[in-house]
Nucleic acid binder design. Structure first.
Lengths: 188, 188, 188, 188
DNA sequence: GGCTAAGCGAGACGGTACGTCGTGTCTTAGA
DNA sequence: TCTAAGACACGACGTACCGTCTCGCTTAGCC
């Protein structure tokens, strides 16, 4: 029995309460204005317990934001034979899910953290870019556009980032058109 | 009745020293870790002097980052008759100028600030998105693609954001291909 | 002009408010249970201001207790010709002033600090033992008992310490008898 | 029905290790700076074990200090017929034993605890004042000075406290003279 | 040329958050 | 039921920073 450790085990409920409290406070107070004291109080947890799980407030927030933001679907959109329509629906619904929700602030926080911290970038890639890229690869290879898959994924990811960071609803609605342009531009 | 007031005039050299110090410290310490005390000391300036020019640390950093990051060229790329080649060169050189430079950290800081603060978003739009969008509009209208101008601008901006935030050199190099796809996809 | 320093001068009112708050809280909460947060809040002062004046909570409490406890009278008791009566009245009133007052807790705190910290001992000596010793010296030399002055002072100080630390009212009342015994024992 | 309870019996070695560790740490770190964590670690004991024997850190320290400081001899000094000489030797050797030893810090800690906490005062009284007072009573009654016994005990205790708290070697050496003065002052 | 007023560097002010440490309780596995 | 180990809630400590205020001094425009 190698893994049984002495002493009282760490409280997973406490950890989850902290993550939930962090998410709620990022949403209600804003990423930059959350304090550990607030988080601990909201979670009903001692401050030291937070530092037992995370090295710093920064690490906690990175974890909380990543845990509480849903990763994009890596599943292929259902094939109807019409690539443009399939992608359009899938990309549009992805960005809508991100930008419509109350959690848009969490995604923006995730983006900001990534811009400032390479480590956060890697984690955002795992949850965000990589699944999307995989799905696009599958679709594009299935339709003979394999060599354009990475470029297309760049474009979709970029368009989402743009809509997210600018909060520009018009840009968000134009994402369907972006898909059409890319599908046309990668034909043949 | 001139608006010159009595008393000693504000020191422009002090203001510039503050901006330079802010930029240097963002680069050397990181956006989140700069402190006003550091900035004031580095600039050889009293703290109150900074607050005489900017309302808050946040405002100073936004201003410093924006002042010290070069806005994209709003000038139309020189027309050679080959839209794809013109755009490709212009977009690629823009992103290279941003991402190659030591100041990439400043651009990332600007992006992070925009993600967290709508006010910063507006300023970033003025300096970046708007000029780029204007240039694309001009090019696209001149080549009969006017109705696709906004979508194309979305894509170029997005691709740049993606390359910037992910620090992915491969994605950066693919931006030339992005331009080609968009030009093809908006033909006719 | 050697002493004029740059910057805002330190606030003497703030310092005094801190000392008063420290004294009040030692009296109401007990020496061991006072917290700097309480003191700062009671004094209406930022915590950093306290650390600007004192190096630590310990240093503040030592200073506060010493400042707020009245030193013994170093003045000679009025000579009536009856040394025993003069000393008796003076010693008894000294111990009564210490032990009767609400500030007894402050004197006990001072004693405890002295027991634990030689630096505090020196300060207590200045405020407490030295004046008493000086007064006893004067009286004893004036009455031909000079060579017993130090011993007598030891006894009076010790008796006071005993009454103070034991909180024993009977011992306190016996201090008058202590004086008589010493006067008798040092005669001739 | 014996009062032995079911389950594992408490570990007396653990208790003694805790007391020894507490004493050592008071000596090496200082009374105010000892922590339970240190004590437990030094004693090789779990923290809960300490709380099974003592109600609080304070109670442990009081107990440790008292256990590790030798109480004064309550035994009468051997009668030689010369009260002054007998007392002088006994009192002087008592204070020397206290103040010379490495454990002087423990006695001072005990004194400090007594000044701050009435409960500690009671314990100190049991170990120190009461035995000394009993011995003095016996001696004084045996020599017809019974009515001065309490006063004399006050003086001896006080002189010891004074020497202990002030760390003043001269005062310590004068204790022999104190005895002489008291013996003279209580004659007849 | 002196007066007035605002800016200047410096640094203390009240507050708030951070990350660490200590206390006393609780919860594991094991003796 | 005790043991060592260690997590738990709580709260104090000392530091860092923010944005404001207050010194003595400097630097302009206006009388």
């Amino acid at each position: 029995m190698p893994e049984s450790r002495a002493g009282r085990p760490r409280s997973e409920p406490a950890r989850l309460a902290v993550l939930a409290a962090a998410r709620d406070l990022v949403l209600s107070e804003g990423y930059e204005r959350v304090s550990l004291v607030q988080i601990a109080a909201t979670a009903g947890v001692g401050r030291q317990t937070i530092y037992r799980w995370w090295r710093s407030k920064e690490a906690l927030l990175a974890d909380a934001v990543l845990t509480e933001t849903l990763p994009l679907d890596a599943e292929l959109p259902p094939h109807t034979g019409d690539l443009a329509a399939d992608l359009r629906g899938w990309v549009q619904s992805s960005i809508d899910r991100i930008a419509d929700s109350d959690a848009a602030a969490l995604y923006r926080a995730l983006l900001a953290a990534s811009a400032l911290d390479p480590a956060a970038t890697a984690r955002m890639n795992d949850a965000f870019a990589a699944p999307l890229r995989a799905a696009v690869h599958a679709s594009f290879h299935a339709t003979g556009r394999g060599r354009h898959a990475d470029v297309a994924a760049d474009v979709f990811i970029g368009a989402m980032l743009n809509a997210l960071v600018t909060r520009d609803d018009a840009a968000r609605r134009r994402i369907a058109d972006v898909v059409d342009v890319v599908v046309r531009g990668t034909a043949g």
